[in-house]
Design a protein around this nucleic acid. Structure first.
Length: 558
RNA sequence: GGGCCGUUAACUCAGUCGGUAGAGUAUCUGCCUUUUAAGCAGAGAGUCGCUGGUUCGAGCCCAGCACGGCCCA
């Protein structure tokens, strides 16, 4: 781009609204070698229009400068000319709307009149019905909504004229007393009315709301203003994580934080994101799991630890996958994987109750009962009984491979029987596990960090939890034999060299930690996003992540 | 990565056979002191995602691209 664009950007950066004449002069000086300034026609005549030039220019540059913006800017100019600040910070909010509305909803008009109390509320105007000398509007804060009644007779001519310049989307402060309208709605009769924050952009239509999902995700701030369900979902998410912490805390677990940037990414089979530390000139990976660090803490002597936080996996996006997602992992020394099954049942039942009030939840039209006492099936059993596959096929590599390939999945060269069986499971079993099922005793080949079963070294003391046809948790008795662990890493390294770029790398420090001695332990990871989806009945992971990953918005002209 | 669908005013959506771009909401003007998807009368508002092509003529047909959605891998 040219110097023309640069000088325009400088002007934009230097200007802040309402700063006075020195700023204007400086802008003029900076822009003196730029082309003549464009005239913007607004439905108002005032020197202050010039203060809004940065906004006008940026809107114009993006072809967004429509009549609505011009009107809003004109109103802002008029408000400033009348001595009304657009972004003051002196309104003392006294009450939250929600509690006020709830507490007084049962009261009749007479009881409200006897209160003799003035409320100080602040919120965003989300709808407005204006008559000549009187108006009703609804304000919304974090706790709820309430209707406000404004009349010229009470407010006075001057204040009412100012009020007429308020728009839907503005944040206002109101004081007044409560009453009931003719139709019986609890309403605040405004004694005073003040602008707290001017909104320059129009909100989406009130009836249909914001339907375009792309805009809802990209401009989540707008979504949260106009989509109550969206707010509910994210409040539920917070409830879930708070209850999860409370449950683990009260069970004696200690919350810890381990590195998200790791030199050797481990603890899961996934491709990592790569990053770089400049000062140390060191390659780093964003973690794919906290597992290996949490187990180091068991070596260090902490017996019950957990971490809830973000993991990063360099894979595609879908309705079930976001590259950064939240997991809770916890490790419990001297426990076995079966202890974790019991704990998981109690945890999920409690979370369901906290969010929905019931241990039974409805997910995408299916009733799912999360009350403890879930089905428990071994991996092989599940393929046979749920998947309906002949045991002879399950045990025979070639037959199993043939069936997988017939079903449209690929079997890569060098993949062992356990991996092929896992594919059979994914195809024939997983989608059928609607009610909660613990599937245990996974093949050792696909469980490089799990402890082998004492009676059968081919399988591990591991389970995965499935609900609504999806994996919700992965848990196992931990492998704490450093020699076995080293060999499993070496197997993984060979698979990596053979082309499996999701296979583990050798982590010498982790093996060294095990060589000091890690107590026998059981550990589990729970995918929080999927759990929130389940408990809020959402089909897409993007509905439960505030800012899901999207490609950048198209920049016209770039 | 593949298939299907979508992208038209700030928002929600129509747009017939290829023939001057439509509605509701929002905005603006006027009336209006109990509305609640307030009402009545009027007005303004568009790079039809982008780039090409076909055609006398493209929102519409064709190709490519971008972004998104759903399904599959």
């Amino acid at each position: 781009m040219t110097g023309h664009a640069n000088s325009r950007r400088q002007m934009r950066l230097s200007g802040r609204i309402g700063r006075g004449n020195d700023m204007q002069q400086r802008r003029t000086a900076v822009g003196s070698d730029a082309p003549r300034k464009k005239e913007y026609k607004l439905p108002v005549k005032s020197k202050r229009v010039e203060d809004f030039r940065p906004l006008l220019e940026s809107l114009d540059a993006r072809d967004e400068l429509n009549e609505v913006f011009k009107n809003r800017i004109a109103k802002a100019v008029q408000l400033l000319d009348d001595g009304v600040a657009l972004y003051p910070n002196d309104f003392a909010k006294g009450d939250d709307i929600g509690p006020v509305a709830e507490a007084h909803e049962p009261l009749a008009e007479e009881a409200l009149a006897e209160l003799g109390r003035t409320f100080r509320l602040a919120g965003r105007i989300v709808s407005l019905r204006s008559f000549g000398k009187v108006a009703f509007f609804t304000i919304q804060d974090a706790s709820g909504r309430i209707q406000v009644f404004a009349e010229r007779e009470t407010l006075g001519q001057e204040a009412y004229t100012v009020f007429k310049k308020f728009d839907i989307g503005d944040i206002v402060g109101v004081t007044g007393r409560l009453f009931r309208t003719k139709t019986g709605e609890l309403t605040l009769h405004a004694d005073t009315l003040s602008l707290v924050t001017k909104s320059m952009r129009p909100l989406p239509e009130k009836y249909h709301g914001l339907k375009d999902v792309e805009t809802r995700y990209r401009q989540r701030y707008v979504d949260l203003i106009v989509t109550p369900r969206s707010v509910e979902i994210f409040k539920a998410r917070t409830t879930i994580i708070r209850e999860l912490r409370a449950f683990l805390d009260s069970s004696g677990f200690m919350e810890v934080e381990t590195p998200m940037m790791q030199a050797i990414p481990g603890g899961a089979t996934a491709r990592p994101f790569v990053t770089h530390h400049n000062a140390l000139d060191m390659g780093l990976y964003m973690r794919i799991a906290p597992e290996l660090y949490l187990k180091r803490l068991l070596v260090g002597g902490f017996e019950k630890v957990y971490e809830v936080g973000r993991n990063f996996r360099n894979e595609g996006v879908s309705t079930r996958h976001n590259p950064e997602f939240t997991m809770c992992e916890f490790y419990w020394a001297y426990a076995r994987y079966t202890d974790l099954m019991d704990l998981t049942e109690r945890l999920f039942a409690r979370l369901a109750k906290a969010v929905t009030g019931s241990e039974t939840v409805s997910y995408q039209g299916q009733e799912i009962n999360l009350a403890p006492g879930w089905a428990r099936l071994s991996f092989h059993e599940s393929i046979e009984k749920v998947g309906g596959i002949d045991p002879e096929i399950i045990r025979d590599y070639d037959k199993a491979k043939a069936l997988v390939e017939k079903s449209g999945e690929k079997v890569l060269k060098g993949e062992k029987l356990g991996k092929v069986q896992a594919k059979l499971f994914d195809i024939f079993v997983e989608p059928k596990l609607i009610q909660p099922h613990f599937i245990y005793h996974y093949p050792t080949e696909i469980s490089p960090l799990s402890r082998r079963n004492t009676d059968n070294p081919e399988i591990t003391d591991r389970f995965e939890l499935f609900i609504a046809g999806r994996e919700m948790a992965n848990a196992f008795s931990e492998l704490n034999d450093p020699v076995d662990q080293r060999q499993r890493f070496e197997d993984q390294v060979r698979e990596k060299e053979a082309g499996d770029d999701e296979a583990h790398r050798m982590d010498e420090d982790y093996v060294r930690a095990l060589e000091y001695g890690m107590p026998p332990a059981a550990g589990e990871g729970i995918g929080i996003d999927r759990l929130v989806m389940l408990l809020t009945d959402q089909a897409s992971i993007r509905e439960v992540i505030l800012f899901p990953l999207l490609r950048p918005e198209g920049q016209p002209g770039s």
